[in-house]
Nucleic acid binder design. Structure first.
Length: 434
DNA sequence: TCTGGGGTCCTAGGACCC
DNA sequence: TCTGGGGTCCTAGGACCC
Protein backbone atom coordinates (compact mmCIF):
# COMPACT_ATOMS: atom_id res chain seq x y z
CA UNK A 1 0.00 0.00 0.00
CA UNK A 2 1.49 3.31 -1.03
CA UNK A 3 1.69 6.11 1.50
CA UNK A 4 0.62 8.96 -0.81
CA UNK A 5 -2.73 9.52 -2.51
CA UNK A 6 -0.97 9.28 -5.85
CA UNK A 7 -3.56 7.31 -7.79
CA UNK A 8 -5.93 9.55 -9.71
CA UNK A 9 -9.30 8.50 -11.12
CA UNK A 10 -10.96 10.82 -13.62
CA UNK A 11 -14.56 10.36 -14.66
CA UNK A 12 -16.28 12.65 -17.17
CA UNK A 13 -19.70 13.87 -16.01
CA UNK A 14 -22.59 12.43 -18.05
CA UNK A 15 -20.09 12.28 -20.88
CA UNK A 16 -22.14 11.58 -24.03
CA UNK A 17 -25.01 13.89 -23.15
CA UNK A 18 -22.58 16.61 -22.08
CA UNK A 19 -20.88 16.50 -25.48
CA UNK A 20 -24.33 16.81 -27.07
CA UNK A 21 -25.20 19.81 -24.92
CA UNK A 22 -21.85 21.39 -25.74
CA UNK A 23 -22.45 21.05 -29.48
CA UNK A 24 -26.20 21.72 -29.42
CA UNK A 25 -26.74 24.91 -27.40
CA UNK A 26 -30.53 24.59 -27.47
CA UNK A 27 -30.21 21.43 -25.35
CA UNK A 28 -28.25 23.04 -22.54
CA UNK A 29 -30.10 22.90 -19.25
CA UNK A 30 -32.55 20.36 -20.66
CA UNK A 31 -32.90 16.60 -20.23
CA UNK A 32 -30.87 14.79 -22.90
CA UNK A 33 -30.83 11.03 -23.30
CA UNK A 34 -28.29 9.28 -25.53
CA UNK A 35 -28.68 5.65 -26.44
CA UNK A 36 -30.24 3.10 -28.80
CA UNK A 37 -33.38 4.65 -30.25
CA UNK A 38 -34.96 1.49 -31.62
CA UNK A 39 -37.66 -0.54 -29.90
CA UNK A 40 -35.00 -2.55 -28.08
CA UNK A 41 -32.52 0.20 -27.31
CA UNK A 42 -31.15 1.11 -23.90
CA UNK A 43 -29.89 4.35 -22.39
CA UNK A 44 -26.16 4.98 -22.60
CA UNK A 45 -26.12 8.31 -20.80
CA UNK A 46 -28.79 10.52 -19.27
CA UNK A 47 -27.91 14.16 -18.58
CA UNK A 48 -28.19 15.39 -15.01
CA UNK A 49 -31.42 17.18 -15.98
CA UNK A 50 -32.95 13.80 -16.93
CA UNK A 51 -31.87 11.92 -13.81
CA UNK A 52 -34.46 13.37 -11.41
CA UNK A 53 -37.06 11.72 -13.67
CA UNK A 54 -35.55 8.38 -12.77
CA UNK A 55 -33.69 7.86 -16.02
CA UNK A 56 -30.31 6.16 -15.81
CA UNK A 57 -27.76 4.14 -17.74
CA UNK A 58 -28.74 0.71 -19.08
CA UNK A 59 -32.44 1.45 -18.70
CA UNK A 60 -34.64 0.27 -21.59
CA UNK A 61 -35.27 3.23 -23.86
CA UNK A 62 -39.05 2.75 -23.87
CA UNK A 63 -38.99 3.13 -20.10
CA UNK A 64 -36.87 6.28 -20.36
CA UNK A 65 -39.37 7.74 -22.84
CA UNK A 66 -42.20 7.00 -20.45
CA UNK A 67 -40.42 8.59 -17.50
CA UNK A 68 -39.09 11.63 -19.29
CA UNK A 69 -41.10 12.16 -22.49
CA UNK A 70 -39.85 15.71 -23.01
CA UNK A 71 -36.19 14.84 -23.13
CA UNK A 72 -34.19 15.04 -26.35
CA UNK A 73 -33.49 11.46 -27.46
CA UNK A 74 -30.29 11.17 -29.48
CA UNK A 75 -28.50 8.28 -31.17
CA UNK A 76 -24.98 9.35 -30.23
CA UNK A 77 -22.00 10.53 -32.28
CA UNK A 78 -19.03 8.40 -31.41
CA UNK A 79 -16.56 10.36 -33.50
CA UNK A 80 -17.27 13.44 -31.40
CA UNK A 81 -17.00 11.45 -28.17
CA UNK A 82 -13.74 9.90 -29.33
CA UNK A 83 -12.30 13.33 -30.10
CA UNK A 84 -13.20 14.71 -26.69
CA UNK A 85 -11.88 11.56 -25.07
CA UNK A 86 -8.57 11.88 -26.92
CA UNK A 87 -8.20 15.43 -25.63
CA UNK A 88 -8.81 14.30 -22.05
CA UNK A 89 -6.46 11.32 -22.29
CA UNK A 90 -3.73 13.55 -23.75
CA UNK A 91 -4.00 15.84 -20.73
CA UNK A 92 -3.61 12.83 -18.46
CA UNK A 93 -0.65 11.41 -20.37
CA UNK A 94 1.09 14.70 -19.83
CA UNK A 95 1.06 13.88 -16.13
CA UNK A 96 2.38 10.35 -16.31
CA UNK A 97 2.93 7.55 -18.80
CA UNK A 98 0.90 5.29 -16.53
CA UNK A 99 -2.61 6.12 -17.76
CA UNK A 100 -5.13 3.28 -17.83
CA UNK A 101 -8.17 4.19 -19.91
CA UNK A 102 -11.17 2.18 -18.72
CA UNK A 103 -13.49 3.57 -21.41
CA UNK A 104 -13.90 6.77 -23.40
CA UNK A 105 -14.82 8.69 -20.29
CA UNK A 106 -12.84 7.18 -17.46
CA UNK A 107 -9.19 6.62 -16.61
CA UNK A 108 -6.72 5.96 -13.82
CA UNK A 109 -3.37 7.76 -13.60
CA UNK A 110 -0.43 6.70 -11.44
CA UNK A 111 1.05 10.02 -10.37
CA UNK A 112 3.94 8.30 -8.60
CA UNK A 113 5.25 7.52 -12.07
CA UNK A 114 6.34 10.18 -14.51
CA UNK A 115 8.36 13.29 -13.67
CA UNK A 116 9.34 13.74 -10.03
CA UNK A 117 6.71 15.71 -8.14
CA UNK A 118 5.50 16.48 -4.66
CA UNK A 119 3.02 13.84 -3.52
CA UNK A 120 1.62 15.47 -0.42
CA UNK A 121 -2.15 15.92 -0.30
CA UNK A 122 -2.04 19.64 -1.00
CA UNK A 123 0.19 19.33 -4.07
CA UNK A 124 -1.90 16.50 -5.45
CA UNK A 125 -5.11 18.46 -5.00
CA UNK A 126 -3.56 21.40 -6.81
CA UNK A 127 -2.48 19.17 -9.65
CA UNK A 128 -5.94 17.61 -9.92
CA UNK A 129 -7.62 21.00 -9.90
CA UNK A 130 -5.39 22.05 -12.76
CA UNK A 131 -6.37 18.89 -14.66
CA UNK A 132 -10.04 19.66 -14.22
CA UNK A 133 -9.47 23.19 -15.47
CA UNK A 134 -7.49 21.93 -18.47
CA UNK A 135 -10.20 19.42 -19.34
CA UNK A 136 -12.84 22.12 -19.17
CA UNK A 137 -10.81 24.57 -21.28
CA UNK A 138 -9.55 22.15 -23.90
CA UNK A 139 -12.81 20.26 -24.48
CA UNK A 140 -14.91 23.37 -24.83
CA UNK A 141 -16.55 23.21 -21.43
CA UNK A 142 -16.91 19.57 -20.44
CA UNK A 143 -16.74 18.86 -16.72
CA UNK A 144 -15.30 15.89 -14.91
CA UNK A 145 -14.93 14.53 -11.42
CA UNK A 146 -11.56 13.55 -10.04
CA UNK A 147 -10.66 11.33 -7.13
CA UNK A 148 -7.28 10.87 -5.47
CA UNK A 149 -6.32 8.00 -3.20
CA UNK A 150 -3.69 5.51 -2.22
CA UNK A 151 -5.10 2.84 -4.56
CA UNK A 152 -7.35 2.44 -7.56
CA UNK A 153 -10.25 1.54 -5.29
CA UNK A 154 -9.77 4.66 -3.15
CA UNK A 155 -9.35 6.93 -6.16
CA UNK A 156 -12.55 5.54 -7.66
CA UNK A 157 -14.46 5.92 -4.40
CA UNK A 158 -13.18 9.48 -4.15
CA UNK A 159 -14.29 10.45 -7.67
CA UNK A 160 -17.67 8.86 -7.00
CA UNK A 161 -18.04 10.96 -3.85
CA UNK A 162 -16.96 14.05 -5.79
CA UNK A 163 -19.55 13.76 -8.55
CA UNK A 164 -20.55 15.81 -10.38
CA UNK A 165 -17.90 18.38 -11.29
CA UNK A 166 -15.93 17.85 -8.11
CA UNK A 167 -12.63 16.86 -6.58
CA UNK A 168 -11.94 14.69 -3.58
CA UNK A 169 -8.92 13.15 -1.92
CA UNK A 170 -9.06 10.26 0.50
CA UNK A 171 -6.10 10.97 2.75
CA UNK A 172 -3.58 8.22 3.46
CA UNK A 173 -4.73 6.56 6.67
CA UNK A 174 -8.38 7.56 6.23
CA UNK A 175 -9.21 4.73 3.80
CA UNK A 176 -10.99 2.28 6.08
CA UNK A 177 -13.19 4.82 7.81
CA UNK A 178 -14.06 6.46 4.50
CA UNK A 179 -15.51 3.27 3.04
CA UNK A 180 -16.91 1.73 6.23
CA UNK A 181 -20.39 3.18 5.85
CA UNK A 182 -20.68 2.75 2.10
CA UNK A 183 -22.90 0.08 0.61
CA UNK A 184 -21.06 -3.17 -0.13
CA UNK A 185 -22.17 -2.45 -3.70
CA UNK A 186 -19.47 0.26 -3.81
CA UNK A 187 -16.82 -2.45 -3.97
CA UNK A 188 -15.81 -3.26 -7.55
CA UNK A 189 -16.97 -6.76 -8.41
CA UNK A 190 -20.08 -6.59 -6.24
CA UNK A 191 -23.04 -6.51 -8.59
CA UNK A 192 -26.70 -7.43 -8.14
CA UNK A 193 -26.10 -11.17 -7.75
CA UNK A 194 -23.31 -10.83 -5.19
CA UNK A 195 -25.25 -8.17 -3.31
CA UNK A 196 -28.18 -10.56 -3.07
CA UNK A 197 -25.96 -13.23 -1.54
CA UNK A 198 -24.39 -10.77 0.87
CA UNK A 199 -27.86 -9.62 1.82
CA UNK A 200 -28.70 -13.14 2.91
CA UNK A 201 -25.63 -13.06 5.17
CA UNK A 202 -26.90 -9.87 6.76
CA UNK A 203 -24.33 -7.71 5.03
CA UNK A 204 -25.25 -4.31 3.70
CA UNK A 205 -22.19 -2.08 4.25
CA UNK A 206 -18.49 -2.42 3.62
CA UNK A 207 -17.93 -2.58 7.38
CA UNK A 208 -20.36 -5.53 7.59
CA UNK A 209 -18.13 -7.49 5.23
CA UNK A 210 -15.27 -7.19 7.70
CA UNK A 211 -17.33 -9.18 10.22
CA UNK A 212 -17.32 -12.23 7.97
CA UNK A 213 -14.49 -14.74 8.00
CA UNK A 214 -12.70 -15.64 4.81
CA UNK A 215 -14.26 -19.11 5.03
CA UNK A 216 -17.77 -17.67 5.22
CA UNK A 217 -17.06 -15.40 2.28
CA UNK A 218 -15.62 -18.28 0.28
CA UNK A 219 -18.69 -20.44 0.88
CA UNK A 220 -20.91 -17.65 -0.42
CA UNK A 221 -18.83 -16.30 -3.28
CA UNK A 222 -16.08 -18.72 -4.21
CA UNK A 223 -12.36 -18.37 -3.71
CA UNK A 224 -11.46 -15.48 -5.99
CA UNK A 225 -14.45 -13.32 -5.12
CA UNK A 226 -13.97 -13.94 -1.40
CA UNK A 227 -10.35 -12.90 -1.39
CA UNK A 228 -11.05 -9.79 -3.41
CA UNK A 229 -13.88 -8.76 -1.12
CA UNK A 230 -12.00 -9.56 2.06
CA UNK A 231 -9.11 -7.33 1.00
CA UNK A 232 -11.04 -4.46 -0.59
CA UNK A 233 -13.35 -4.20 2.44
CA UNK A 234 -10.19 -3.42 4.40
CA UNK A 235 -9.00 -1.00 1.72
CA UNK A 236 -6.20 -3.36 0.78
CA UNK A 237 -5.70 -2.92 -2.95
CA UNK A 238 -2.40 -3.14 -4.76
CA UNK A 239 -3.72 -3.48 -8.31
CA UNK A 240 -1.29 -1.59 -10.55
CA UNK A 241 -2.31 1.11 -13.00
CA UNK A 242 -1.65 -0.58 -16.34
CA UNK A 243 -1.12 1.65 -19.34
CA UNK A 244 -1.24 -1.14 -21.89
CA UNK A 245 -3.64 -4.03 -21.74
CA UNK A 246 -3.45 -6.95 -24.08
CA UNK A 247 -6.55 -7.58 -26.20
CA UNK A 248 -8.02 -10.94 -25.22
CA UNK A 249 -11.09 -11.11 -27.42
CA UNK A 250 -12.87 -9.31 -30.25
CA UNK A 251 -16.58 -9.59 -30.91
CA UNK A 252 -19.45 -8.10 -32.86
CA UNK A 253 -23.08 -8.63 -31.99
CA UNK A 254 -26.43 -7.24 -32.94
CA UNK A 255 -29.88 -7.31 -31.42
CA UNK A 256 -32.54 -7.26 -34.12
CA UNK A 257 -35.50 -4.93 -34.19
CA UNK A 258 -37.56 -8.07 -34.70
CA UNK A 259 -36.51 -11.64 -33.98
CA UNK A 260 -35.01 -13.42 -36.98
CA UNK A 261 -36.42 -16.80 -37.90
CA UNK A 262 -34.97 -17.44 -41.34
CA UNK A 263 -31.77 -19.52 -41.12
CA UNK A 264 -30.28 -18.00 -44.28
CA UNK A 265 -30.92 -14.55 -42.94
CA UNK A 266 -29.22 -15.46 -39.66
CA UNK A 267 -26.27 -16.91 -41.55
CA UNK A 268 -25.96 -13.74 -43.57
CA UNK A 269 -25.69 -11.83 -40.28
CA UNK A 270 -23.08 -14.30 -39.06
CA UNK A 271 -21.10 -13.70 -42.25
CA UNK A 272 -21.32 -9.92 -41.86
CA UNK A 273 -20.24 -10.07 -38.21
CA UNK A 274 -17.40 -12.41 -39.15
CA UNK A 275 -16.13 -9.92 -41.73
CA UNK A 276 -16.11 -7.14 -39.16
CA UNK A 277 -14.34 -9.33 -36.62
CA UNK A 278 -11.77 -10.39 -39.22
CA UNK A 279 -11.17 -6.79 -40.23
CA UNK A 280 -10.49 -5.84 -36.63
CA UNK A 281 -8.17 -8.82 -36.21
CA UNK A 282 -6.25 -7.77 -39.30
CA UNK A 283 -6.08 -4.16 -38.16
CA UNK A 284 -4.59 -5.30 -34.86
CA UNK A 285 -2.27 -7.74 -36.62
CA UNK A 286 -3.77 -10.64 -34.68
CA UNK A 287 -4.98 -14.16 -35.37
CA UNK A 288 -7.51 -16.14 -33.39
CA UNK A 289 -7.75 -19.78 -32.35
CA UNK A 290 -11.23 -19.83 -30.84
CA UNK A 291 -14.46 -18.73 -32.52
CA UNK A 292 -17.58 -18.17 -30.43
CA UNK A 293 -21.15 -17.86 -31.62
CA UNK A 294 -23.46 -16.07 -29.23
CA UNK A 295 -27.23 -16.15 -29.44
CA UNK A 296 -30.01 -14.66 -27.41
CA UNK A 297 -33.46 -16.15 -27.63
CA UNK A 298 -36.85 -14.40 -27.58
CA UNK A 299 -37.19 -15.08 -23.83
CA UNK A 300 -33.92 -13.15 -23.28
CA UNK A 301 -32.00 -16.25 -22.25
CA UNK A 302 -28.78 -16.78 -24.14
CA UNK A 303 -26.26 -19.38 -25.11
CA UNK A 304 -22.73 -19.55 -26.46
CA UNK A 305 -21.07 -22.19 -28.59
CA UNK A 306 -17.37 -22.15 -29.29
CA UNK A 307 -14.80 -24.08 -31.21
CA UNK A 308 -11.03 -23.99 -30.93
CA UNK A 309 -8.79 -24.62 -33.91
CA UNK A 310 -5.36 -26.20 -33.92
CA UNK A 311 -4.00 -23.14 -35.71
CA UNK A 312 -4.98 -19.49 -35.79
CA UNK A 313 -6.81 -17.48 -38.43
CA UNK A 314 -7.83 -13.95 -39.35
CA UNK A 315 -9.91 -14.97 -42.35
CA UNK A 316 -13.51 -13.76 -42.51
CA UNK A 317 -14.52 -16.83 -44.49
CA UNK A 318 -13.00 -19.23 -42.01
CA UNK A 319 -14.50 -17.48 -39.01
CA UNK A 320 -17.88 -17.38 -40.75
CA UNK A 321 -17.67 -21.06 -41.65
CA UNK A 322 -16.97 -22.07 -38.07
CA UNK A 323 -19.60 -19.76 -36.58
CA UNK A 324 -22.08 -20.98 -39.17
CA UNK A 325 -21.26 -24.56 -38.26
CA UNK A 326 -21.87 -23.79 -34.60
CA UNK A 327 -25.24 -22.29 -35.54
CA UNK A 328 -26.18 -25.57 -37.21
CA UNK A 329 -26.11 -27.23 -33.81
CA UNK A 330 -28.75 -24.86 -32.49
CA UNK A 331 -32.52 -24.85 -32.84
CA UNK A 332 -33.42 -21.43 -34.20
CA UNK A 333 -36.98 -22.43 -35.00
CA UNK A 334 -38.41 -20.24 -32.25
CA UNK A 335 -36.57 -17.17 -33.53
CA UNK A 336 -33.40 -15.40 -32.51
CA UNK A 337 -33.17 -12.02 -30.80
CA UNK A 338 -29.42 -11.51 -31.00
CA UNK A 339 -26.53 -13.04 -32.88
CA UNK A 340 -22.89 -12.40 -32.09
CA UNK A 341 -19.58 -13.63 -33.43
CA UNK A 342 -16.45 -13.43 -31.31
CA UNK A 343 -12.88 -14.61 -31.38
CA UNK A 344 -10.40 -15.27 -28.59
CA UNK A 345 -7.17 -17.13 -28.03
CA UNK A 346 -5.42 -14.33 -29.89
CA UNK A 347 -1.86 -14.64 -31.13
CA UNK A 348 0.42 -12.52 -33.27
CA UNK A 349 1.17 -15.23 -35.79
CA UNK A 350 -0.97 -17.46 -37.97
CA UNK A 351 -0.13 -21.05 -37.17
CA UNK A 352 -0.34 -23.99 -39.55
CA UNK A 353 -2.56 -25.81 -40.04
CA UNK A 354 -4.92 -22.88 -40.37
CA UNK A 355 -7.76 -25.09 -39.37
CA UNK A 356 -9.10 -28.60 -39.49
CA UNK A 357 -10.30 -29.99 -42.74
CA UNK A 358 -13.59 -31.21 -41.33
CA UNK A 359 -14.78 -27.70 -40.60
CA UNK A 360 -14.23 -26.83 -44.23
CA UNK A 361 -17.22 -28.93 -45.16
CA UNK A 362 -19.62 -26.16 -44.14
CA UNK A 363 -17.66 -23.49 -45.96
CA UNK A 364 -19.62 -21.70 -48.64
CA UNK A 365 -17.15 -19.17 -49.97
CA UNK A 366 -19.10 -18.09 -53.00
CA UNK A 367 -22.14 -17.18 -51.05
CA UNK A 368 -20.22 -15.34 -48.36
CA UNK A 369 -18.11 -13.40 -50.83
CA UNK A 370 -21.21 -12.38 -52.67
CA UNK A 371 -22.83 -11.09 -49.51
CA UNK A 372 -19.84 -9.02 -48.58
CA UNK A 373 -18.76 -7.64 -51.90
CA UNK A 374 -22.06 -6.17 -53.01
CA UNK A 375 -21.87 -2.39 -53.08
CA UNK A 376 -25.42 -2.05 -51.85
CA UNK A 377 -26.90 1.40 -51.94
CA UNK A 378 -28.32 2.05 -48.55
CA UNK A 379 -30.69 4.94 -47.90
CA UNK A 380 -29.19 7.73 -45.87
CA UNK A 381 -30.02 7.22 -42.23
CA UNK A 382 -30.88 10.47 -40.48
CA UNK A 383 -30.62 9.43 -36.86
CA UNK A 384 -31.65 12.04 -34.30
CA UNK A 385 -28.60 13.97 -33.16
CA UNK A 386 -26.52 13.31 -36.28
CA UNK A 387 -24.52 16.15 -37.78
CA UNK A 388 -25.61 17.47 -41.17
CA UNK A 389 -24.66 20.40 -43.34
CA UNK A 390 -26.93 22.25 -45.76
CA UNK A 391 -25.53 23.91 -48.87
CA UNK A 392 -26.99 27.30 -47.96
CA UNK A 393 -27.98 27.14 -44.31
CA UNK A 394 -24.72 25.61 -43.06
CA UNK A 395 -24.18 23.14 -40.21
CA UNK A 396 -26.92 21.70 -38.06
CA UNK A 397 -28.18 18.46 -36.56
CA UNK A 398 -31.06 16.09 -37.08
CA UNK A 399 -33.92 16.87 -34.76
CA UNK A 400 -36.18 14.18 -36.14
CA UNK A 401 -36.94 12.23 -39.28
CA UNK A 402 -39.57 10.03 -40.84
CA UNK A 403 -41.94 9.72 -43.80
CA UNK A 404 -39.21 10.83 -46.15
CA UNK A 405 -38.62 14.08 -44.29
CA UNK A 406 -35.83 15.35 -42.07
CA UNK A 407 -36.10 18.15 -39.55
CA UNK A 408 -32.86 19.99 -38.91
CA UNK A 409 -31.92 22.51 -36.27
CA UNK A 410 -29.23 24.85 -37.52
CA UNK A 411 -26.94 25.58 -34.62
CA UNK A 412 -23.43 24.91 -33.39
CA UNK A 413 -21.56 25.62 -30.20
CA UNK A 414 -20.06 28.65 -31.93
CA UNK A 415 -23.21 30.12 -33.51
CA UNK A 416 -25.67 29.37 -30.71
CA UNK A 417 -29.33 28.32 -31.07
CA UNK A 418 -30.63 28.72 -34.62
CA UNK A 419 -33.62 28.06 -36.85
CA UNK A 420 -35.40 24.74 -37.46
CA UNK A 421 -36.23 23.63 -41.01
CA UNK A 422 -37.67 20.50 -42.60
CA UNK A 423 -36.38 18.93 -45.83
CA UNK A 424 -37.06 15.95 -48.04
CA UNK A 425 -34.76 13.09 -47.02
CA UNK A 426 -33.32 13.00 -50.54
CA UNK A 427 -32.69 16.74 -50.73
CA UNK A 428 -29.35 17.00 -52.55
CA UNK A 429 -28.48 20.18 -50.64
CA UNK A 430 -28.47 18.24 -47.38
CA UNK A 431 -25.39 16.18 -46.52
CA UNK A 432 -24.98 13.77 -43.64
CA UNK A 433 -21.60 14.10 -41.94
CA UNK A 434 -19.57 11.11 -40.74
C1' DT B 1 -44.72 -5.10 -26.86
C1' DC B 2 -39.50 -7.69 -23.13
C1' DT B 3 -32.86 -5.26 -21.32
C1' DG B 4 -27.28 -2.88 -25.97
C1' DG B 5 -22.60 -3.78 -27.16
C1' DG B 6 -17.94 -4.39 -26.08
C1' DG B 7 -15.16 -6.33 -22.97
C1' DT B 8 -12.92 -9.02 -18.49
C1' DC B 9 -12.56 -12.64 -15.11
C1' DC B 10 -14.13 -16.82 -12.59
C1' DT B 11 -16.05 -21.52 -12.04
C1' DA B 12 -16.82 -26.16 -13.01
C1' DG B 13 -16.82 -30.47 -15.44
C1' DG B 14 -14.70 -33.54 -18.73
C1' DA B 15 -10.75 -35.00 -21.45
C1' DC B 16 -6.21 -35.97 -21.40
C1' DC B 17 -1.48 -36.41 -19.77
C1' DC B 18 2.16 -37.55 -16.57
C1' DT C 1 -9.19 -56.54 -9.68
C1' DC C 2 -11.39 -50.61 -5.34
C1' DT C 3 -11.38 -45.31 -8.29
C1' DG C 4 -4.57 -41.24 -6.67
C1' DG C 5 -3.42 -36.60 -7.77
C1' DG C 6 -2.02 -32.76 -10.17
C1' DG C 7 -1.87 -29.75 -14.27
C1' DT C 8 -3.64 -27.99 -18.62
C1' DC C 9 -6.91 -27.35 -22.25
C1' DC C 10 -11.55 -26.86 -23.87
C1' DT C 11 -16.35 -25.67 -23.33
C1' DA C 12 -20.43 -23.39 -21.30
C1' DG C 13 -22.27 -20.40 -18.31
C1' DG C 14 -22.39 -16.59 -14.98
C1' DA C 15 -21.22 -12.20 -13.08
C1' DC C 16 -19.51 -7.86 -13.61
C1' DC C 17 -17.84 -3.33 -15.65
C1' DC C 18 -18.33 0.82 -18.57
Amino acid sequence: MRNAASVMHLDMDAFFSSVEQRDKPSLRGKPVIVGGLGARGVVSTASYEARPFGVGSAMPMHEARRKCPNAAFLAGRFTAYRQASDQVMAILRDLSPAVEAMSLDEAYVDLAQGPPRELDDESLLELAQRVRRDVFDQTGGLTCSVGLGTSKFMAKVASELAKPDGLRLVAPGAEEETIAGLSARAIPGVGPATMERLDRLGVSTVADIRQLSKAELTRALGKAGAEMLHDLARAQDDRPVEAVRETKSISVEDTFEQDLVDVDEIKAVVARHSSLVAARLAKAGLFARTVTLKTRWPDLSGSTRSRTLHGATDSAEQIAAIASGLLDGLDVGGGVRLVGVGVSGLTQIAQEPLFDLDSLSSLKPNKIVEENSGTQRRPRLFLPGADVVHAELGPGWVWGSGLGRVTVRFETAATGPGPVRTFAADDPDLALLD
